[in-house]
Design a protein around this nucleic acid. Sequence first.
DNA 1: GCGACAG
DNA 2: ATCTTGTCGC
Length: 219
Amino acid sequence: MHVKQLHPWPSTVAEAESIQDRLRGHVELTGPTAFTLVAGLDVHYHGDDELTAAVVVLDAGTLAPVEQVVAYGKAAFPYVPGLFAFRELPALVTALELLTVTPGLLVCDGYGLAHPRGFGLACHLGVLTGLPSLGVGKTPFVGTHEPPEQERGAWTPILHEGATVGRALRTQPGVKPVYVSQGHRISLDTATSQVLHLAAHYRLPEPIRHADHLARHPS
DNA sequence: GCGACAG
DNA sequence: ATCTTGTCGC
């Protein structure tokens, strides 16, 4: 599939932040409510700056893998909370360009709108590809929230600077919630229902689990 | 002001 | 993210 060009690439924190501030205006918060193919994306690090990016496309109905690709690269930016996307984007984009099918939704490992400048990895990947995207975080990042009730499907809003930027969602009963936020071309309701559907058996959505496994154990 | 801070 | 085994509980 085709992905928009990345350049110019930032070399300073200020440049990276200004790229986020500029691209933030391209994010759309409404879009499709159902998908045929969903992709999970993840990166595995080894050594100081080497990484493996993996994308696995699943049939949204059966959750069966349809295609999987890996790309090797190096972290493209130092780790700075809030600028995390700049580490992994080049390798993830390389992997996406290897796909022969185009997914209808990108399920990203990290945050989207729930980000200090409202433009996390999921938003960035959505804008670059033009595809609907959402982010799933494993730990709270920005904002405040009440713990959701213990049953599967329970959620509470994540509030940041007076706005709802995501949801803490209980995908499995009695298990720590995941943190869902919009990336691009998706509503918060749709993002929530998709994550709940994709995480029918485990805490994390199936596409992310597949991508995580592939990144750790490339074939 | 200080510390904490997605992966 | 990564360095790391067994163990408890559903």
